[in-house]
Nucleic acid binder design. Structure first.
Lengths: 336, 336
DNA sequence: CGCGCTTGATCAATCGTTTGCGCAACCGGT
DNA sequence: ACCGGTTGCGCAAACGATTGATCAAGCGCG
């Protein structure tokens, strides 16, 4: 692999000159003729600055880690794209990690931050993770931006969960539903709380009395959604519609409905919060409220960059674009 | 962040001594007393060797990249786990590459290999990728192990595609099916070829005449499976069962069957090659042939390590555990 | 007592890059 | 011709870890 001194020799100048030219410092005093020769030589030998040498000198790796609970979750496609696009735009490479492996305090995590392999971390904590502990194990050791959730001392970025849930419920109300179940996330989870709030707000605005038994707190996974649906559909007076707080949970809701012989949307309407490509392939295709996850990813990286550069802790909500309803076929008017 | 000299100062020895103790070289001549003091001091200051310094000196980063066409594909969960486990076992960090940019030839890829950020690459080429071109853009620039597919000059690791397909078809034959469709992968793809071969082999062994119109070559995605099913189910004499060469395609097959009002498995049996958690949540849950993808991942990394250490190009097949049929509810005896 | 050998530890060079500083050469103005 | 001010470039010192070379003791042995 070509190094700086190779380029220097080829161009007949010193390594410092080459470094200055290639780093593109306009304040550097190098003649245009030399610049040309250097650039030409660099191109000829296919020079790329050695990562280790650079990182050692600059105390910076231009690597940021994105840690999510499960990389194969279709929901993370958009988030990941956003993170990566913004990272690339800032000249960084993204290191994608599964949080099972990257448990703060775990061996891999120690290597990442302890050995200085990354400049900063964008973390989406697992539901149920302890914020205090995360603050200790992560926040104190590396620049950190959390997603969906705040932890003490770290910046955070969220999406308008409450508004999205409200939109979902309002859509069902507009279709004529009055008894609407809510298949929510885990009780402790901040997003679960916000989404439940949004749902209740919609009911309130429509003058519909909220019934506690119509709200479950089981989680965002497929099996959680299925359990939620089983609970809601076992109610004496069955809901005619269910808002699933997560698109994966919604898939579980569909499965449970099918298992009970209920046709969607004829017997039960379903609206999910979040959109993902999987929602197009369910039966019926899921009506969703799409969240600005791509922008969430970009904003997270931008925020992280501020922290790395010494900026203050900040909390942002990504409100543009707004959550928008994507109508497919899982929601219809109730069959009186 | 604590460095070697900090530990040295605290233990009252030189940096070289510390380095030798901490690197665990048994040949190093250091007294047991000093070793203890060094280890104690290192633990006290929480020393982790600086990545950049180490990489610079050793010309090695202990990072391997796993490049797959699409990280959110549920199929990659197992593969990724295998790769990561083996990487960790060998003291490496796995860099999971997602974007189109990371694909060979993209700008990020150039940074990865050009800047020496990774020691080697485990690559699952996209279907339809040109082997010659990959050999040029990747194989010549970094140690490389490919998955599922060979490219010139690089080691490769595969799973027994042919056997798996044979098992799938044999299962349907055992259930009594005689007219069996095969929803295959892209025509040029080596795995598609091997799986189709296995399917035909099963028919041959059972003395069933193969009909070319019962084999499609559309690809592994959901939409491909759907198109394949549409094609097969439009045949004058409809197959009573379909083997989907990929679990994602199988989901598409289910969707198409449903769209045509066919009940699975009453009107149509479906068996998929590969297993993934998504297969448990379809309707009906998919009968699959599970492939040793976790072991594939581990073997790929082990093979890559050999190459990095100067080993010769080698081609392996992961045959343990064998492909095994996971019976769920999408396959049954044909009606009448 | 001196020699060779082993043991325990330090010195210093090295990896590739960046960057503050110094040093010529050259400019225009007196 | 002299001189302050620029311009163009190279020298050399970091950054943190590894490792061959080196060196001072200590020991056994004749």
């Amino acid at each position: 692999m070509a190094k700086l001194s190779d380029v220097a020799a080829r161009a007949g100048v010193s390594v410092s000159a080459v470094s200055r030219v290639l780093s593109g410092d306009p304040a550097a005093r190098v003649s245009e003729a030399t610049r040309d020769r250097v650039r030409k030589a660099a191109a000829e030998v296919g020079y790329h600055p050695n990562f280790a040498g650079r990182a050692l000198k600059l105390a910076r790796t231009d690597v940021i880690a994105l840690i999510v609970p499960d990389v194969t979750n279709a929901l993370f496609t958009e988030l990941t794209r956003g993170v990566e696009d913004e990272a690339v735009a800032r000249g960084c490479v993204m290191l994608l990690a599964r949080s099972e492996d990257m448990q703060p305090g775990g061996p891999m995590f120690d290597r990442l931050v302890g050995e200085g392999r990354v400049d900063g971390i964008v973390l989406q904590p697992r539901d149920g993770a302890d914020p205090q502990e995360l603050a200790r194990t992560v926040g104190e050791r590396a620049p950190l931006v959390t997603i969906h959730q705040r932890i003490p001392g770290a910046s955070s970025v969220v999406v308008p969960d409450e508004l999205a849930a409200r939109r979902a419920t309002e859509h069902l109300i507009a279709l004529g539903h009055r008894r609407i179940g809510f298949a929510g996330g885990l009780a402790g989870s901040p997003t679960a709380q916000r989404r439940a709030d949004g749902h209740l707000e919609a009911l309130l605005r429509a003058g519909i009395a909220a019934a506690p038994e119509l709200v479950t707190w089981r989680g965002y996974r497929e099996s959680d959604g299925r359990a939620s649906a089983a609970e809601l559909l076992a109610l004496p007076q069955r809901p005619t519609a269910i808002v699933a707080a997560n698109v994966n949970a919604a898939i579980g809701v569909l499965a449970q409905a099918r298992a009970q012989g209920l046709a969607v949307p004829r017997d039960l309407s379903v609206v999910a919060i979040h959109d993902a490509w999987t929602a197009e392939h369910t039966w019926p295709p899921l009506t969703c409220v799409r969240m600005p996850l791509y922008e969430l990813g970009r904003t997270a990286v931008a925020t992280l960059a501020e922290i790395v550069d010494g900026g203050a802790v900040v909390h942002r909500s990504v409100d543009d674009p707004e959550p928008v309803l994507v109508g497919r076929e899982s929601a219809a008017a109730p069959r009186n």
